[in-house]
């Protein structure tokens, strides 16, 4: 190759391809969160406490109309809705999803430095980003449901200079 082509080659090598979008990073984070082994903390009581009532409420909301469903509806008594029938079958056969795992993965942490609280106390502020993953499983059929939620946590820790 002549010098001119080598110069062009060197110029091209200096060009930096554009970075993937934050959206792509978020999607990869979501995909890799369950498989990641970094900074994992399992069995967090407060998370269970928050999630289980919410899950129970969601199940109740879904099945409440079915439980109240009149077996002899006034409008079309001969053809009850298919969805209700299917769901009722699921209820009666005991196919229930049970929570089996909770984990949270810390994927970024930033020390935002010193801040001053309202009372003048100096404090250090940290911003942490997690992906929380909760998995439910049906022990009979092995069907599973995974729920992933991104979470940002800001910690303000008072500091004292001695």
């Amino acid at each position: 190759m002549d010098d001119e082509l080598q110069q062009l080659e060197a110029e091209l090598k200096r060009l930096r391809p554009v970075a993937p979008s934050p959206e792509l990073f978020r999607r990869v984070t979501s995909d890799l969160a369950p498989a990641s082994r970094c900074e994992r903390r399992a069995n967090i009581p407060w998370l269970w406490a928050a999630v289980l009532p919410a899950a129970a409420a969601a199940v109740a909301i879904i099945f409440l109309p079915i439980a109240r469903h009149d077996p002899t509806p006034q409008i079309e008594p001969a053809t009850p809705p298919k969805v209700a029938a299917t769901a009722a079958t699921v209820m009666t056969s005991g196919e229930v999803l049970k929570p089996v795992a909770v984990e949270n993965v810390l994927y970024s942490a930033q020390d935002e430095g010193l801040v001053t609280l309202d009372d003048g106390t100096p404090a250090r502020r940290e911003r942490l980003n997690y992906v929380d993953t909760i998995t439910w499983k049906n022990p009979r059929t092995n069907a599973s449901l995974t729920w992933q939620v991104p979470r940002e946590e800001v910690r303000v820790v008072p500091v004292s200079f001695q």
């Binding site: 970075a19 990641s36 994927y107």
Partner: peptide, 16 residues
């Protein structure tokens, strides 16, 4: 190392 570093390293070139 964490996948984030890999993605930072290879992501732009892979995208291209």
């Amino acid at each position: 190392d964490f996948w984030q570093k890999w993605f930072q390293l290879y992501g732009p070139r892979l995208l291209l």
